[in-house]
Structures are given as structure tokens and as C-alpha cells.
């Protein structure tokens, strides 16, 4: 610097000049700082506001997400219910189909039964007729039986009369001997 004729030769002035230039630089830096600080503060405020807005939107998004999740759950539940209902419907349909088949079978069975009933009625009628004839026969048999019973009673009376007769008693020894010797019952 000393060789530069533009600068003062005096050492104090040289140093003072450098101090002034340093002060100039300090003031420039201070001004730079003072320019940046409000901008930074403004940006801080905006950032805070943006963050608040973001938070609000996040809350809304969270709420909507919750609503969506609830709807999804409801949808899943409804789908499940639909599935269950379908299953039940299918089961019912199958059951109805099975019942229809059963009904046909039953109808057929009923028809068979009707046929059988008719046959049974015929058989019953025939049986009744037979029973009637048998009853007639039975009555005749009973009448004959009574007749024969009377005869038996008559014969029994006659037998008892015979066995209580003196002649029967006097011939008893002969019948015993016959049993011993002949081995036959009387």
C-alpha cells in the first residue's frame, strides 16, 4: 500500500483508513443482517401459518381417512353380510330345491299311499267280507260247538254216572291189573 500514491503516507491515517473501511464493512454486514432478519421473521411467520394450515388439513385428512376407514369397515361388513346372505340364500335355495324334490317324492309317496290306501280299502273290504263270512262260519261253529258241548256234557254225565256205578268200582282191580301187565294207561 505504501507504494500507492493514492493512499496517505501518514501511518495513523492509513490505519484509520483501514478502521473506517472495516467499519464500512461492518455496517454493510449489519445492514445485510437487518435486511435478512425481518425476511427471516416473515418467513418464520409464514412457515408457522403454513404449518398451521398443514396441520388443519392433516387433521381434515385424518378425519376423512377415519371416515374412509369407517366406510371401508362398513363396506367390508356389508360385503361380509352380503356374502353371508348369499350363502344363506344359496343354502335356502338348495334347501328349497331339496324340499321341492322331497315334495315331489312325498307327492309320489302320497299317490302311492293313496293307491295303497285304495288297495288296503279293497283288501279291508275283502277282509271285512271274509270276516263277515268267517263270523257267520264262526257263529255256525259256535252253534255246533254248543251242540257238541251239550253232547260232551251229556257224555261226561254219562261217564261220571258210569264211573260212580258199583259195577265200575267192582271192576277196578281188573283195570289195575291191566295197567301193570299191559303197561298201558287206561
Amino acid at each position: 500500500m505504501k507504494s500507492d500514491p493514492a493512499v496517505p503516507a501518514d501511518q495513523v491515517n492509513l490505519l484509520r483508513q483501514q478502521l473506517i473501511l472495516a467499519q464500512v464493512r461492518i455496517m454493510e454486514l449489519e445492514d445485510g443482517r437487518d435486511e435478512l432478519q425481518p425476511r427471516l421473521a416473515g418467513l418464520e411467520k409464514l412457515l408457522t401459518a403454513a404449518q398451521d394450515l398443514t396441520d388443519l388439513k392433516l387433521q381434515e385428512a385424518a378425519h376423512l381417512e377415519k371416515v374412509r376407514a369407517d366406510l371401508q369397515t362398513q363396506y367390508e361388513h356389508l360385503r361380509h353380510m352380503q356374502h353371508v346372505t348369499n350363502e344363506a340364500l344359496n343354502a335356502s335355495r338348495a334347501e328349497v330345491a331339496a324340499h321341492s324334490l322331497g315334495k315331489v317324492a312325498l307327492l309320489s309317496e302320497v299317490e302311492n299311499l293313496h293307491t295303497l290306501t285304495r288297495q288296503l280299502a279293497d283288501t279291508t273290504r275283502q277282509q271285512l267280507e271274509r270276516i263277515s263270512s268267517l263270523e257267520t262260519a264262526h257263529r255256525a261253529a259256535l252253534a255246533e260247538s254248543a251242540t257238541r258241548q251239550e253232547r260232551i256234557a251229556q257224555l261226561d254225565a254219562e261217564q261220571r254216572a258210569m264211573k260212580s256205578s258199583r259195577s265200575w268200582r267192582w271192576t277196578a282191580w281188573l283195570r289195575s291189573l291191566e295197567r301193570v301187565l299191559g303197561g298201558r294207561k287206561p
Binding site: 496517505p8 501518514d10 491515517n13 483508513q17 483501514q18 473506517i20 473501511l21 464500512v24 464493512r25
Partner: peptide, 10 residues
């Protein structure tokens, strides 16, 4: 002082 050059190089 007039000898101080405000345009000098720092």
C-alpha cells in the same frame, strides 16, 4: 482528513 481515501481497498 482529506488524505483518507474512502474508496481505498480494505
Amino acid at each position: 482528513d482529506a488524505r483518507i481515501d474512502f474508496g481505498a481497498t480494505r
